[in-house]
Design a protein around this nucleic acid. Structure first.
Lengths: 203, 203, 203, 203
DNA sequence: CATGAATGAGCTTTCATTCAT
DNA sequence: TATGAATGAAAGCTCATTCAT
């Protein structure tokens, strides 16, 4: 699961709105979706409980908003901009982009926590489930498109099982951040570098 | 996260006890740790709420029991018995053992769900966090020991970064099951096969 | 144990607040601190149970409030204002003030009941215990100060054991009200009058 | 409230029975009548909860038994044996007997605590209330009979208000133990000595 | 005699939600 | 826009009690 730093676009809606969202994010990260109660959120936002209902019709609506905030602008291209990849920089850029993504999450452990809460919750809410599935699938697909691009550039051999290789990349990258989140020591740089070099056919 | 089929040893304790545990497992899988209430569990078990307290001193104690049930006998050796690996079967056994693990979880999607709930909950309960960390670390370490064994057998080249390679194996295997759980289509066999062949230095 | 008529100062807080306190006082008097449940209190106050939590953070907080209500403004001077005592009125004023106190409690048997419940409960809650001890000690001390004042006025002989005499006064007065509360017939006026005349050295 | 050391006569009923009563007494002293639950009692007695029902038909029955145990053999004569009082020893014996009673309670603070719990509970249970009233009244009456005896012996003047004096004695003695129980420092010896000397007409 | 197993009633507390203002 | 006041529903938990064994 990866996500770049969250930035809410709705500037016009005023401070209270943002306070609610920020408080909600912080509390969900700390206590989870259900234990983060509206009381706590209102409290942290410095407003009264009913005020939340002015902006969100229900707690569920608020959580939905957070969910979309985190997953909406989540795109493979943001981290691995296909158009910047050339024959010469392919391997090193792939490595760098991946490491950069890992670093971003390392710096925002809260985000990963929230996302994890949503992932588990997705088991109970179909709408989340579908969006989540779609998002992750898209990301895996991004790696596939990238590898195909690499083939066209001639840096990746023809005839390889690109699907499996791209999925391996996605799975590894995703899980490195999960393990980092849990505080399990993983040599993230080395592992990612190896995964890349393998996919590139280096040895 | 991997786990073989759960089997409770305490046969002597009678039916009610098992009903409680089974109901709890099912409901935790479906609704999560907090939303699976004692009322629901009692209901599903066909008993009254206080009856649960005859067997467990609190809801937390019940959840702890489930947690231990799932994580206690979780061992790398169970899936990858080091002593069975030889020079000749190393590569294929590694592949087969991994696929077998994946298949096991594929057949018990409930277990993975519960485990995921516990993983998220671990963020709030240190005891879980520690055990979880220890368990996952142990599993990664298992792969490392296995690769070292492979080196001794001469099937893996000297001078390789075994730590990174073992971690790659662990991360990939773990995340394949996660993705399967979420219903994301991953070519698990192909990916795992590739990961193994990479680590073995095949190409 | 003595206490003047309870009167809550917080007029501004609205009716519900007062209803809660009044209901709580009545039910604690009748059933005791533990058996007076929030359900009963809410019921008697004509509100829902959670409404109580809007005003008090817990049952304990509510009981604490009652406790303070009863003991806070409990002062010896309120019943025996030292500055009003003169050489001429000393004996009769001491008698009158005591009788007045007894009468007050006679007219508010509920208060004494509640106080008794708190006294017993003090054995389990240190905060109550300390305040209670302090309050009663202060009252005994009040009598001592009063007798010293009497010595200065020349109505009480020098060289007497004022401590013992003052404690006798306090103990008698306190226990008369207890016995009255229990419905045990005590000739309160006669007993108190005798106690006073003894302390004054009359015969 | 005064009470000599409790001693159960029912020896024949076996150990369990006594264990139950002892445990109940100890726990009632510590936690009060309601909070001392049958679970706790059974636990402390080293038996199972239903075992209590073999000896007592209900918790109330058990409490009733304790109540009677404490109040049944409560007699003024036990502490102040009228027949031992003579013209010569009257004053000193009265003093000594009272001090002895106080000392007894001082050495058994548990008993006083339990008795206090019952006194408060008496407000809710008429049967207790009546017995309690009767017991206390009897004690006050005992002092009256003693003073009358003193008059006959010629150590107390004729024409005195013996009722008020006897009540004063009873109230003082009773409340001294209460205050001692609460941990309020009272010069018990001095106060009681004064009370006696007053009643005797000494000065 | 005594217990393991179980229950209904009731407890304090928290929650998302509503509504008049 | 925002809040004070209140609520129904449900949570985890404890208790006195029962009953077959």
């Amino acid at each position: 699961m990866y996500k770049h730093t969250y930035k809410d676009e709705t500037v016009a809606k005023g401070d209270t709105y943002k306070h609610i969202i920020d408080s909600a994010l912080a509390l969900v990260a700390e206590f989870g979706l259900e234990k983060a109660s509206l009381s706590m959120i209102a409290n942290k936002a410095g407003i009264s409980k009913p005020a939340i209902y002015y902006y969100f019709s229900s707690k569920e609506a608020l959580l939905d908003h957070l969910f979309n905030l985190l997953f909406d602008d989540y795109q493979f291209d943001h981290y691995f901009p296909l158009e910047t990849y050339t024959k010469d920089n392919f391997s090193s850029l792939l490595t760098d982009n991946g490491l950069h993504l890992l670093q971003e999450y390392d710096e925002n452990p809260e985000l990963l926590k929230i996302i994890n809460h949503f992932i588990v919750y997705a088991g109970q809410k179909q709408a989340y489930d579908e969006k989540l599935k779609h998002t992750l699938t898209e990301f895996l697909d991004g790696f596939r498109r990238l590898l195909i691009h690499g083939q066209k550039l001639g840096v990746i051999k023809e005839g390889e099982d690109l699907t499996a290789k791209s999925q391996l990349l996605g799975l590894v990258l995703d899980n490195i951040s999960s393990y980092l989140l849990m505080g399990i020591k993983v040599e993230s740089t080395a592992v990612w570098t190896q995964a890349v070099s393998y996919v590139m056919g280096d040895d």
